[in-house]
Design a protein around this nucleic acid. Structure first.
Lengths: 190, 190
DNA sequence: TACGACCTACCTACTGATAGGTAGGTTTAA
DNA sequence: TTAAACCTACCTATCAGTAGGTAGGTCGTA
């Protein structure tokens, strides 16, 4: 098994910590212990915690967008695409052990640099764009019922998904996510 | 104007700080400065930050429940009651400057004592019960359209409201809350 | 009434731990 | 050799909290 480069290991560790404990809830000491280098060495890769948050959000955005593009490319109807995106959010909640980075950062947004607030904003816009696309497709191909306005559906769905993650995280139980999105799921007919 | 007792002033200050910055984002020093006593004196009223969080959640639950009961008592149709509750959540987001305590605490739940996690769970159950009541009324009196299952509607709506707060908080703009709940609003006919 | 005991609510001084970070040096791999 | 990546040693600042004390108020009893 190839050894991961330290910077990536740090990003993985930091993402996991941020999504589990929040931005204010983890420290460089946690990352150092996890990755196996000294706390002070982290500054070589990330000169400040703020800079680390920038890199985290950037990477998260890219990965998530790639996942959405994959869903769009691999699944035929708007309904299945929406269903896959719901699954993506469910998976991101890590069985109630984590939140997606966007949610986690939003709750402590005052601790973050302005650039990251911008990134969070763009992340939400990106997800809403994909959701709007899926709702439009689903409305036209009939795989999502009662689509009044795809753009408004998209915005509401994103809030629903984020709120569902919060509930699951609070209870450390994915069943709370499932219950929150059940009605939405019933509107989807593959 | 009567002088507020110190304990209440501390609770107010702590609630504001927790809902703005998160549990890990504020410290006793912030409260001390706000209330005008020394940091160490806070321990007289709240021996630990964990105990403070217990008191905060208890008070928040009581206040919120009283607000829901008032809505139920003062407004006639299920639709207007639901509409008022949505307004309550919007108001709690403080024009994008705050989150409701439940959301704020959920995001850093690992920093909280187990009892508070229980309290958060009960808070959500309480809100869901009220929402279920409002949806049932709205379904029967015709003031909320397309109510498939009041209990599921309630759960989804709570997640929607919490997610909407996150979006508004992240952007520091209540317009994002409004947009997220727009479709729900359209289902209400006074 | 007066005084002692007790309480409440604050203080100063301090603790040990931890936070993010700096600076200079060493090690490792290409 | 050189640069990246690590190290040690340390910094300032801050954290939640402890310990002992003061001051003013209240209560009970003689």
């Amino acid at each position: 098994m190839p050894t991961m480069d330290t910077k990536t290991a740090l990003l993985n560790s930091a993402e996991h910590a941020a999504r589990t404990l929040g931005f204010d809830g983890f420290s460089y000491a946690d990352l150092a212990e996890d990755v196996g280098i000294r706390k002070a060495s982290i500054h070589h890769h990330f000169p400040s915690k703020a800079k680390l948050s920038v890199a985290l959000m950037q990477r998260y955005h890219q990965n998530f967008e790639a996942n959405c593009a994959a869903i769009s490319g691999n699944h035929g109807t708007g309904g299945t695409q929406l269903s896959q995106l719901i699954k993506l959010y469910r998976a991101a909640s890590g069985n109630g052990k984590q939140l997606c980075l966007c949610v986690s950062f939003s709750a402590s947004r005052d601790s973050l640099p302005p650039g990251v607030i911008e990134q969070i904003s763009m992340f939400r816009e990106m997800v809403i764009a994909w959701l709007t696309d899926f709702f439009e497709k689903g409305s036209m191909d009939g795989s999502i019922s009662n689509v009044a306005d795809p753009a408004l559906e998209a915005v509401a769905t994103l809030s629903l998904l984020e709120g569902a993650q919060l509930a699951a995280r609070s209870e450390e139980n994915p069943r709370f996510f499932d219950e929150a999105v059940k009605l939405l799921g019933m509107r989807i007919t593959a």
